[in-house]
């Protein structure tokens, strides 16, 4: 059907709006590059890994301590949150009676809705002192991992829940006809069928964990050194930016934008892989 004149004008207007929305990502990348450039053009990128330490004011830009803190925290949180989240989804789908499942799903939704700063506050005032009793100082990689786990668990649970709900009824009936036990059905039929949902849920959760700032900043201790144990205070890439942006100038500021670029790169890779695993996804 051909478009009328008004339609064409409206379409053009909408196109401008959509173009603006689409350009924001490029604008973000452009400004990250622009602000990083002052530093990137003086130092080779290897120095971010080979310098002695992170002392940007003295011209030392080693980001590996922060990078490893981010990776350890993300890895730990995903290792904990993936089984817990998957178990929560299984509970909803196959174990809880409908009413209880609805209540539990709502609770997971509420958990997802708590702002990160509140998780951080709770972690700092409740969890960190408890862990400090176990092994001082309390604010540590472990505390960060636990809080992150709590934050990304709903992402895993809700995504896997949706994936499990899409398991065909025919498979469920066939499993019942074959006399499979509940766990036999879950491990042999449901989880394999929903595996792309499991993968994309876990990856999305990992993306959230990498990008999370406030909660980790508040509970992980913020010492910019290489972590050697779970009880060491650590500083993630995101926390580093949040802590130092307030007073950073010149090359120091540029170095923070470089770590922003690094974060962006990590998240882009994850988004790409997650998309490859699962076509249908919502912005959890």
């Amino acid at each position: 059907m051909s478009l009328s004149n008004t339609d064409r004008q409206l379409a053009a207007l909408l196109r401008v709006g959509a173009l603006l929305a689409a350009v924001i990502v490029l604008l973000i990348l452009w400004f990250l590059f622009k602000e990083s450039w002052a530093l990137l053009r003086q130092v080779t990128w290897t120095r971010f890994f080979t310098d002695a330490s992170w002392h940007p004011v003295a011209g030392l830009y080693r980001i590996t301590p922060m990078l490893s803190a981010t990776l350890y925290a993300t890895l730990g949180a995903v290792l904990l949150a993936a089984p817990l989240g998957i178990a929560s989804a299984l509970f909803n789908q196959y174990y809880a009676p409908p009413l209880l499942a609805a209540v539990y799903r709502r609770l997971i939704g509420l958990l997802a809705g708590i702002p990160s700063v509140v998780y951080g506050f709770w972690g700092l005032t409740t969890l960190a002192p408890l862990i400090g009793r176990l092994h001082p100082p309390g604010v540590s990689l472990l505390t960060g991992i636990l809080i992150l786990t709590l934050m990304i668990l709903p992402t895993v649970a809700l995504t896997v829940d949706a994936a499990l709900a899409a398991v065909p009824v025919a498979s469920i009936r066939s499993a019942a006809a074959l006399g499979l036990s509940r766990w036999g059905f879950i491990s042999g039929v449901a989880l394999p069928t929903a595996r792309s949902g499991l993968a994309s849920g876990t990856l999305l959760a990992a993306g959230r964990a990498i990008g999370e700032t406030m909660a980790v900043l508040m509970v992980a201790g913020n010492v910019a050194g290489q972590p050697h144990s779970l009880f060491d205070p650590v500083r993630t890439l995101t926390a580093n930016i949040a802590l130092e942006m307030a007073y950073a100038t010149g090359d120091h500021r540029a170095a923070l934008f470089v770590s922003g670029l690094v974060l962006m790169g990590m998240v882009l890779v994850l988004v790409g892989v997650a998309e490859w695993f699962g076509k249908e996804r919502s912005y959890v």
Binding site: T213, F257, G260, L263
Partner: peptide, 24 residues
């Protein structure tokens, strides 16, 4: 293209939005 760019935008960490907002 628009959808892809929005997918990426949805994945940008909030602190990076902070950096961008500050610079822009």
């Amino acid at each position: 293209l628009v959808r892809r760019s929005l997918d990426v935008l949805a994945g940008v960490p909030s602190i990076v939005f902070g950096l961008f907002g500050n610079a822009f």
